[in-house]
Each structure stands twice: as C-alpha cells, then as structure tokens.
Amino acid sequence: MMKFLNFSLTAVLLSGLLTVSSPANATIVLFKTSMGDFEVNLLDNDTPETVTNFLAYVEAGAYSNSIVHRSMPNFIVQGGGFIYNGETDEVEEPVTFDPVINEPVFSNVRGTIAMAKKPGDENSATNQWFFNNADNSANLDNQNGGFTAFGVVTGNGMEIIAAINALPRYNLAGAFDNTPLQNVPAEGVPVTDEHLVMIESVTVINNNKDTQPELPPLADVDPVPVPPEDNDSSGGGSTGFLLLSALVGIRLFRRN
C-alpha cells in the first residue's frame, strides 16, 4: 500500500471570492492542465446565470492549482472543488458562492461541460463542473431536474479529456474515490501534484459573449427526476458530484 497526502479542512480564502459582483461576460476560456491545454466556448446567451457563476470563480482564481478529483470511464471527468496547496502538500476546499439556479437548456452530450450539484437539489451547483466524455443525455438530462451544460469543448480538447478519462483511477477516500493519477508514487511516497491531474489555471481569452459555437442539442428534461441505476456507472453523476464531507488524516489508496 502507498500513502496518500494529508487532507485538510482548512478553507482557502481566495482573494476576491466573496466580493465578485459583476464578472466579465466571456465566451471562451482556456484550461491549462498538466495533461495539455484546451479551450471551452461558453454558452453565455442561453445559460447566463451558470456562465456568470462559473466566471466569478475564474476571476477569483478559484480553479488555479485545482485537481481533477473524479473520473468515470466513458462517462465524465470532474473537477473544480479542491485545490492543492504546494506549500503544505494538503488538499483544501475553497470558499464557495451561493448556489446558482439550474438552467438545463442543452443536452449532456459528449464535448459539453456541465455543473455538478447535490443529489435531490436541482439548484445546488456552486464551483464543481464536469466534462461529458460520452453522450450522457439519457441519464443526466433527466436526473435531478437535468444537469446544466453551459459550454462546448473546442479544437483538440476532447482528446485531452479522453486521455484523462483513460488514466488509471485510485481510491484515495472520500470524494477522491475515483481519482485519476498520471503516475504512481513509489512505495511510502505520498501522492502530490506531480501525480495528480492538475488544472493549472482557467483564464478568459475572448470576452465577446456573442461568439457562437456549434450548439449542442436541446435537452428534453423530464420534470420528474430519474434516480441513478448504478452509482459506479452512468448514474454516478448525481450522487457523487458534490461531496462536502470532511477529508482528514493520512489515507491509504488502492487502484479501482
């Protein structure tokens, strides 16, 4: 067994996070990751509340040095909720804004980014997001009022996301029960940012909100939420997307 880094409950007081009131309307953001960089075209005009919420975290630097903490093969790649502190080698949870209203306009097809949220509360999305690495419309368009797809990956971005999705996954406990690792540390060596898939930064590169990508299909949302069939398969999206429980102590991990 190999030991995982020590988790901390200390909240990260991100500069400006609680005071951002009117973030710039931006349509294209750049994700810089340890696996490669790619662009996402945001759907400002159709999901304005969700895009405004996402950009507030971007402007506050909330996604810098954050972790891709969950990956489900041929399903989703999830991040945005945990930051790696290189000075302390701890994973910390940032302070979050109030939840954003759900805007399930577009279908959760492959190549879209959507907001994660708590089960049983369709208006509970805050800082966590996920990329759909498959056509998850039959599942996620109907769960919990539908998951809000608010952007489209462009260029070769899906190749990078698919590469992350193909990495071996390890159970590091808590919200990190399906965490992809780029490489595995030697016996007795803790997991650090050298092993995790890191989101180095998310920045605005085009602030013209009218830039229009090829739109995903519209969602046909069932007003009655459909419960997941299997928390470890396509249904894993709703129950595991936003975990706010404590993560403390040194954890042992195993490959899934």
Rank of each mutant, 00 (worst) to 15 (best):
P73A: 11
E59H: 11
N6K: 15
K209M: 08
E87S: 14
D37E: 09
V248C: 02
G111Y: 05
T50L: 02
G79Y: 07
T88C: 01
N231E: 12
E90N: 14
L196D: 01
R70A: 04
T96S: 11
L172R: 15
E229Y: 03
P73S: 13
T126S: 10
P185S: 04
D210W: 07
P23K: 08
P225R: 02
T50C: 08
N139M: 12
I113K: 02
N108R: 07
T27Q: 13
K118G: 01
V68H: 03
E103I: 02
G146M: 01
Y84G: 05
L172Y: 08
S201K: 07
A163G: 08
D46V: 12
N207F: 09
S245L: 09
R255C: 05
I161W: 04
N206G: 04
N45R: 15
S107I: 03
G188K: 11
P104F: 00
A11H: 10
S124V: 08
R254N: 12
S22N: 15
I76H: 07
L167T: 09
F106P: 07
A56R: 15
V68Q: 05
V105F: 04
E39G: 01
N208F: 05
V40G: 07
T192R: 06
D193S: 15
V226Y: 00
V248D: 13
P99K: 04
M1A: 14
P104V: 03
I199K: 07
N207L: 03
Y84E: 03
G236D: 06
N136Y: 02
S201A: 11
N256H: 12
D37K: 08
G79R: 02
N208K: 10
L17M: 13
G80Q: 06
D37C: 04
N183E: 13
M115S: 09
N231V: 15
A62H: 10
L14D: 13
S15G: 12
P48K: 11
P168H: 11
L243E: 14
A116T: 10
G145V: 00
G111W: 03
N156W: 00
F150P: 07
L167E: 06
V105Y: 03
L252K: 14
Q212K: 15
T33D: 05
V91D: 03
F131T: 12
F31W: 13
M158S: 02
K3R: 14
K209N: 09
L30N: 13
F150A: 06
P94D: 10
I164R: 04
K32D: 12
I160F: 01
V20W: 00
D121V: 12
G86I: 07
N102T: 01
D98E: 14
L17C: 09
E59Y: 04
R169E: 05
N165H: 07
T33F: 05
T96Q: 14
T211P: 00
L5R: 12
V77E: 01
